[in-house]
Design a protein around this nucleic acid. Sequence first.
DNA 1: TGCCTTCATTGACCTCGATCAAAGAGTTGA
DNA 2: TCAACTCTTTGATCGAGGTCAATGAAGGCA
Lengths: 232, 232
Amino acid sequence: MTNFDQAFDQFASRYLPAGVNEALHRQLFGLARLIEIEREQSLPLDESAEQFVYLVEGATKLVAHASQSRDQIVAFHFAGDVISVPARVHHSYSVCALRKSAILTFPGDRFLEAASGEPAMLGKLLDASRTSLLRCREKTITLGRKSAAERIATFLLTMAERIGSEVETGVHLDLPMSRRDIADSLGLTIETVSRQLTLLRESKLIETLGRSGVLLLDPARLEDCAGYLRAA
Amino acid sequence: MTNFDQAFDQFASRYLPAGVNEALHRQLFGLARLIEIEREQSLPLDESAEQFVYLVEGATKLVAHASQSRDQIVAFHFAGDVISVPARVHHSYSVCALRKSAILTFPGDRFLEAASGEPAMLGKLLDASRTSLLRCREKTITLGRKSAAERIATFLLTMAERIGSEVETGVHLDLPMSRRDIADSLGLTIETVSRQLTLLRESKLIETLGRSGVLLLDPARLEDCAGYLRAA
DNA sequence: TGCCTTCATTGACCTCGATCAAAGAGTTGA
DNA sequence: TCAACTCTTTGATCGAGGTCAATGAAGGCA
């Protein structure tokens, strides 16, 4: 039920700093398209060109398609995130909703061109890009050098940082993604994800509540399982 | 034998577009430090703060240290690249030379602060960051969903794009990195890297010349081995 | 409330790549 | 030119995680 003006204002309040060139504001307003997508529905994108996406509401996954239905989830995104969706080169990328989501899309080239004269906005975009890069690098470590157990622990801690809520007994997570999504993100299978969660449950490190609820009972000990460097 | 002024000029010609604010130019000149590092030597960095690095000459690897001597190479870099080296969070990062290299380093916070008013420079940095992000995402696919054979083929093609030279018989590579580096980059072991190269050699897809030379005899067929999406 | 579909869990078995071990090729310096 | 490294290749074995198959929740809808 999001309307376009509301959505754009939300975007502007985060990425168009006060005092930004009014012409740029109007230009971006003209470029933006609001799209609502249902759970497990992919954003209909022009694969041949890069796109910028602002996630107004909901949660999404950025999926890279390797050959023959082997998908790799490159990143998860939540409301407020800006996502740069690459054009197809050796692999193709798409944005898919984990639950009902509202999204503003911008054609990549014209978006960057519009932003190119506005340092404040470029700064915001650079920040966003650097955050994505840092997350992607951490994922590289996870996928390249960690065991299944470490991957799951890392995943839970990463999600805790982003969408966890502190409760008396630990940190509570309401995961919007399925076991398949977790597996596709960590380079594992759903069976392995499930088995590792069971092991963590048996070690009293987590509790699971239905399909989406996870309670991290001992985040500190979980960090040891994640293969993180010990605090210096 | 690189001197500072030469190195900085090279950096300026690539990242400080013509007509850039003269004060910014001087400010960055003051922030830069030239360091020469030998093969397998790591750049002595302040782990606690982010650093920007400009690679003047040579070739380097960006290494992430997971616990207990398990290293993951996050990216390779060649002359002209700008590298953003993250501060230590859950893992620590370092830049290590593949061969003798010359490097300009800038403290991350002050570098970004200096650039913040200059749209032309921010644009260049955003480009660099987006290129790194795209490469990192492709690596994510490789590490998350590809077999050892596909990883090696992908690696060879990626290197061909960056440092390959066309010759009559194919594409020639003079790899600056060891088998260990390749393994640490692809999430494999040196033995597996060696075995896969042998298989490619036996399939007449490549020839190897000494330790560092590789000749890609049939890049098109190698793309099929890389698990790339078929051209649309 | 209870069926019914979908998603998650558990079990049995197998495979790819890791590990351990040894031999072979490239470089470097005397 | 040879000796002594280091780096790479090859072989034998092992194990973590994948695959295949069946059972067991959860949530949606009549």
